[in-house]
Design a protein around this nucleic acid. Sequence first.
DNA 1: AAGCAATTGAAAATGAATATCAAAAGCAGG
DNA 2: CCTGCTTTTGATATTCATTTTCAATTGCTT
Lengths: 143, 143
Amino acid sequence: MILEKKKTFNNFAASKGLRSTRQRDIILDYFLATRQHVSVEELYLKIKSAHPGIGSATVYRTLKLFVEAGLAREVLLHDGQTRYEHVMAGEHHDHLVCTGCNAIIEFENETIEHLQDEIAARHGFLIRNHKLEIYGLCANCRG
Amino acid sequence: MILEKKKTFNNFAASKGLRSTRQRDIILDYFLATRQHVSVEELYLKIKSAHPGIGSATVYRTLKLFVEAGLAREVLLHDGQTRYEHVMAGEHHDHLVCTGCNAIIEFENETIEHLQDEIAARHGFLIRNHKLEIYGLCANCRG
DNA sequence: AAGCAATTGAAAATGAATATCAAAAGCAGG
DNA sequence: CCTGCTTTTGATATTCATTTTCAATTGCTT
């Protein structure tokens, strides 16, 4: 599915007349290799250790392209940094965020998705994406 | 219910050993008088026109107190500003956010709330609050 | 009224994100 | 493989929301 995503990005780039560059390839590789919710800074530091030449501005710019291309999604947690997560085809996961230890538990619930569709339809609203975050204390932290 | 909220804040202040100040009273009045999703800047400007002495740092500080006191909730939209909305006892509304015109439509759905409780229970998670935002185009903007 | 700690306002500091711009790199067409 | 044109990049400066700092003020207790 990594090839799949690279193809998606290439198609997007082609359709927008964007050029294919070494940096974008590298950043995409690193982004695809991460797990959930990388901040730009985190991704930048990882990349920098292997590719010192790449600047953080490029990482910022490129992640925004990934969002446009439909590969990534912005996640705003409460730590003052914009984070990015993968957009999986079809599937959509939401988050339980522990305010004690910052653990993030992902879950999926079809019924909730359906209800959202209904609500949107009722308002003539066309859904592009959504975000559901539940804040509280995880099993460990509720002590 | 405004008196209710003032009392809630006073109780909180008392329990934390916080002092009662003119500024906090004023800021609370203005916050309670706002409708949904005030940014700190917006609230500060409103207050400043009638009370020029009050500084923005105090508004920032005080809104965080309201969150601690359970009166307010942070809402992170995608405009780079932290916004605050009222916490209504029991009820919880979520948002349809139009990426075309930035309109925000609020809705409530009991079933979704229930499902969230179930999911949390399944993970031994204790819910403090949650946030559901659906992004897309409103009826006007989907043209 | 006096003393002490919390609070405030102004200004400086921080920090994420964006804009600027000259140099470098991609992509034609010849 | 050059040439010329445009996009992209990296470094730096800039912006802007938020936080911190700190001296002065204020609230509270005795």
